[in-house]
């Protein structure tokens, strides 16, 4: 609700005449402009517009996009899976690489490996994503010709979820899977790299914290074998790791905007950028709202995960 009001106000305070733009620009006929005003309630005072918008959103009518002339929900359903796929794959890469790296850095504290992880984190945070994206494109597409530079490739013959990798898997279509994965490689790696080091650092510090706790000492004193010992270590470290992974997933969704632009990835980021360029209020608000909803859902999932792991959180 707060998100709706906020995006509504922010997008509507821009001093421009959207109706003229939507009607076709400078040369638009006045009747058409007036029609646009009518259709999008632009004649009403802003608070009434807001009230109408909120009512419509809850009724499931996210308005039509003046840019694509289609309902925003239909647009989102087309563009969002691409972003979701990118963010999920990048997130998986982050966790799959970041967690073991962090664990190793903690267990081999102050060794070369630990310092390497630290440098990696620093580069990941400070290297601009677009620069990294272009560099990777230059190396793998232009110089080596190994991987495609832009787009998602051709959609697999059957689409169930809109996630091409998953769809190809479900259909058992290996050719389509290879195509999707090859297109996925560069953008997801770029996206993953920005947060990889952060995850590794958080994992390292949490693990060190847990390692220095008395119950880990006691676990050693009880003569537990490696498996039992590390089970205590990893379960206790996982709470902060889940927190940061949840936050990072939100970052991935929003961070996708830059990546999608560079890689021409037809996702919600690209959609939002073009919506902003054409003052497409319904599309801007719709995509912001969707990202917020996903973010809230992820945080909710994180809270549920806490309760599963930590008995102190349960009621």
């Amino acid at each position: 609700m707060g998100v709706i009001v906020l995006t509504f106000v922010v997008s509507h305070v821009i001093p421009a005449d959207p109706a003229r733009l939507w009607a076709g620009g400078v040369k638009a006929r006045p009747e058409v402009i007036e029609l646009m005003r009518e259709k999008y309630h632009l004649n009403l005072p802003i608070h009434e517009q807001l009230a109408l918008y909120i009512r419509d959103v809850f009724m499931g009518n996210w308005r039509d996009s003046p840019m694509t002339r289609r309902p925003v929900l239909v647009d989102l359903a087309e563009y969002f899976p691409a972003t979701a796929e990118l963010a999920i794959v990048a997130g998986l890469i982050q966790v799959a690489l970041g967690v073991p790296l962090g664990l190793l850095a903690a267990l081999k504290r102050d060794t070369l490996l630990d310092h390497l992880v630290r440098v990696l984190a620093l580069i990941g945070v400070s290297a601009p994503a677009f620069w990294l994206a272009i560099t990777l494109q230059w190396v793998f597409y232009y110089s080596l010709g190994l991987l495609p530079a832009t787009g998602r490739g051709i959609p697999p013959p059957q689409t169930y979820t809109g996630l091409y990798v998953l769809d190809s898997l479900l259909a058992g279509n290996w050719n389509a899977l290879t195509i999707s994965l090859r297109h996925m490689a560069l953008p997801s790696l770029t996206l993953a790299f920005t947060g990889l080091g952060v995850i590794a650092r958080v994992v390292r510090n949490t693990t060190l914290d847990v390692l220095s706790s008395e119950f880990m000492d006691f676990a050693e004193a009880r003569g537990l074998n490696s498996f039992k010992f590390y089970r205590h270590l990893i379960k206790n470290s996982s709470i902060p790791i889940i927190t940061i992974a949840g936050l990072q997933f939100g970052m991935l969704l929003s961070g996708a905007i830059v990546i999608e632009t560079v890689f021409s990835w037809p996702g919600i980021g690209l959609y939002t950028v073009s919506a902003i360029n054409s003052l497409d209020y319904p599309a801007i608000m719709g995509s912001t709202l969707l990202i917020s909803l996903v973010f809230i859902a992820v945080n909710f999932a994180v809270d549920i995960a806490y309760a599963i792991i930590d008995p102190r959180v349960r009621l």
Partner: peptide, 24 residues
């Protein structure tokens, strides 16, 4: 040594509040 710890020689720690893993 690990076979001796907790089996032949076991420890009782000072602060029971911290000696037990809160998640188990």
């Amino acid at each position: 040594l690990r076979k001796i710890r907790g089996r032949e020689i076991s420890y009782v720690y000072q602060d029971p509040g911290n000696a037990l893993d809160p998640l188990y």
